[in-house]
Design a protein around this nucleic acid. Sequence first.
DNA 1: GAGTTTGAAACT
DNA 2: CAGTTTCAAACTC
Length: 723
Amino acid sequence: MQDSPLFGFIDSLSPIEPLKSAYSGNGLQAYHQSLNAASVSSIFTSPHHNAHKEGSKLSKSSFGDYTENEISMEDGTDKNKSPTSSTAVRLFACTSTITRESHTMITCSVNEGIVDPPKGPNDLPQPGRFDSGSPDHNTAPCHGVSVRSDLKQDKCPKLEAVQATNNTVEKRKCLFSSDMQPQDGCQPAKENNEVMGCEWEDLVSGTSGELLAFDSSMDQHHTGVQLAANNAESCGYLLSKLAGGADIPDRTHPTTSSQAYYHEMVVGEDKTENGQLFPEDKKTILSEEIQDNINEENACIPLGCKVETQQRGVRRRCLVFEASGYSHRTVQKESVGDLSFSTSKGKSSAQNHRNPGKTPSPHVHSGSGSLDLQMDNDDCSVGGFLGNDHNSSQSSSPPKKRRKSDNGDDDSCKRCSCKKSKCLKLYCECFAAGVYCSEPCSCQGCLNKPIHEEIVLSTRKQIEFRNPLAFAPKVIRMSEAGQETQEDPKNTPASARHKRGCNCKKSSCLKKYCECYQGGVGCSNNCRCETCKNTFGTRDVAVSTENEEMKQEGDQTENREQEKENDQQKANVHSENHKLVELVVPITPPLDVSSCLLKQPNFSNAKPPRPCKARSGSSSRPSKASETVQSRKTSKAGDSVFIEEMPGILREPSSPGIVKTCSPNGKRVSPPHNALGVSPSRKGGRKLILKSIPSFPSLAGDANGGSATCSSDSATALALGPS
DNA sequence: GAGTTTGAAACT
DNA sequence: CAGTTTCAAACTC
């Protein structure tokens, strides 16, 4: 591994710290401003929506505006800085996703490439991806498809090219170095830009750059890479800031997040660069190589790095959510799995990476397989969402399988039907998810549209001010988060709501009325539900579990019981997993992150509640097994899982802690109810699904923890600025 | 599709 | 912080 160029690259990257610097105010502010100006749309990328239907629609609505810009960007001419800060964010996400996903991407590309004749690079889907932006929301749903094809083609080749990376590695380093050093995240590294390439530009950077407008100074052309990197940082920063803006004290995360972004960006850059450098012909090979490299990187990456990567992943997820990137990733992953295309290496590597890098995958295969699948699913699902929304990602066809399942949920298509809230309250799923309302919505007097960005942002901000976790994912694994971070459950943003727990009385936590259930998570001690029968884990169980764990430590006998429970849980899990898989896909944020560590988030989501909501598919059970077993056995795994599931939010808290998590504490430190987190080992981890983690949150996530916060923050931040 | 149920969000 | 009201999703018919 060390030999691999990637390793070297990683080394160069390791200095991620620079990112932190990047976070420095300048960058952030810049983003901020830009963001403020920009539409919130980015923030709102629809997590909820299913990729398919909504995706197409959403994509437009949300991105539509951007498309043009993006397009122009591609041309290199445009500099319009559209207001769409969001776009930038998304873009980042995309990029990040792309980078990591590139592995998979490759496969996808190949397949796709075959299918669709490549079009000009300009053809890139970007527009499509971003389409949705238009205030009007929807637009033609079809876009997504066409776009996808384009995207696929473009991306694929690019990705492939990227893979070629070895050579590029050096460049990357340079970029990174430059980036790393970069004083301001905001300032686009011209150098980087030079290096960077084109893909990013096409994909994200272009738009993102403009959209973000981070740097006024930025060269338009920079390619996206640097921009992306920079932007990513800035974005991350912003997000964090925004999130933080929310007042979240945890700004520390931002750096991490930013780093994550940065990292992603870098990765993406590598790919992109390669892509540019190398002819498409090499794609296939490169792709494989790239994957391998990536894997290697992951593997090689020191713990610290890994951690960062994880964090990154988290953010990515957040970003990714909306960003087409998600879709890409998912697609890629899926494609990989399905296609196998990547050849054994690709797959193996991919899997391996995940495993090694992230966490040991759990499991056995089936576990691994399952995990991968889940990952894929998640990604796909996510992608679907995002993709749909953005159009971009979805492009990959193969993944559709899962998507279908994921999307399968009728709900995905659904949208809000607010009448009195004007879609500016958390009642509105779209708003809560950080997504603009689109055609599918049957809302009345809706103000949750790009046109009313300011209002939306300000409202968001207000809500966040009131409740920083308002936009955080509703469901998160309590246990994991708590354990890993050891932080107070309160701290973890993501889990905030979940922590808060449901208050079900009549639904017995067996219906979607129950957020826990909806999120695919078991109830936790935080819940105040009555007659809890949550199939994902009852509150009682959770409590008992904890107790048991305590006891277990003392006695093995108790272990038996736990085992029993575990078995039961397993059974549940299996059943759940299926669900989760479906659910997760959509929500799961970019697995990348998880991939870094392990696999799996769920996006948690099983599906999110959103119409397209993402659900968290978490594993939620508080079950003993998860806790004890997971914690002990898979402290790492748990972490990874945790990370995966938790988007930015988790990360933040964890970021520092994450690594620690790995620590031997097998025991859970915190007593989260849900202990679920664990399961990865068993199942391969389910992903938690943040149900509805709105993409936003995840984005913002860092700050206060909650991914949601972040997202929301980001949104708000944009509008209000980090306060 | 209309009406009811439900529990979170918002408000006081 | 607790209680009440409002709201829209989830659900039922």
